[in-house]
Design a protein around this nucleic acid. Structure first.
Lengths: 126, 126
DNA sequence: AGGACACCCGTACAGGTATACGGATGAAAG
DNA sequence: CTTTCATCCGTATACCTGTACGGGTGTCCT
């Protein structure tokens, strides 16, 4: 059945409690937009590489990540559009770095998890 | 050009530095799997609702989120498969709650961001 | 038993998203 | 000024993912 239905809640109290403080769909969409950007292996490792090296150009990123330049260029385009990466043009090379307002807690958590997941064959808490 | 190319790095030092400590593609894929699960408005608000109410059944979740039961059922299936949500069956209703080992930092960050994004029309730091 | 209800599952469909290719832009080197 | 090089852009394609629909299973109530 589609959302427009009439149902009797099993636990009305909890439903009311959840509804009263439930976040808006727009807010959720905005946050999921950010999470979607990090939810990609290429972009996540790219962010890691930029975090470690301060700045890199497209070609060097492709070498560092063992990927095609197309892939890196596309990833950078999305991250740049979202304001998570800024570009500095010097001659014919474009140096990319993480934006200053890159969400710190998300970055720290993800990069540390990456290290943990890399150097532990099997783990538990993700 | 595809990944199999021969290029000369512009900043060999930084490339080597990034390559030496770059996380594995498998680790990145595993982490992005988790991030992908949270990168959906329905699932994110569902997690929020469960965080607030301790536990809810499918029908009540649909009421709380103003969504179809199908949508909630599908979201729960993915979260359960990933071990992020556990189900408790009582009679003919199935109560769902967040798993104990749900990644705490990720949960805290996302839920607080959700509140901030909901009660601020326009904001800055996402 | 019979009917109503809560929920799950398999399939089909539509939308968004990543990748590969070709060409275009702009800067530097010969 | 032509060539080389780093990068970007538009398009086409394959893919992954969320949603909708129909049917099925088990449970409670009468």
């Amino acid at each position: 059945m589609t959302a427009t239905e009439l149902r009797r809640p099993i636990d009305p109290e909890r439903v009311a409690h959840a509804r009263s403080r439930l976040p808006s769909a727009e807010g959720a969409t905005r946050l999921t937009g950010l999470l979607s950007l990090m939810a990609d292996p290429v972009r996540l490792r790219l962010i890691y590489a930029l975090d470690v090296t301060e700045e890199l150009c497209v070609g060097d990123l492709a070498l560092a990540l063992d990927t095609s330049e197309d892939s890196v260029s596309y990833a950078l385009r999305l991250l740049r559009t979202a304001g998570l990466v800024v570009a500095r043009k010097a001659g014919r090379v474009v140096y990319n770095r993480l934006a200053d307002d890159f969400p710190a807690p998300l970055r720290n958590y993800c990069l540390r998890q990456l290290i943990a997941l890399t150097y532990q064959a099997e783990d538990s808490g993700v």
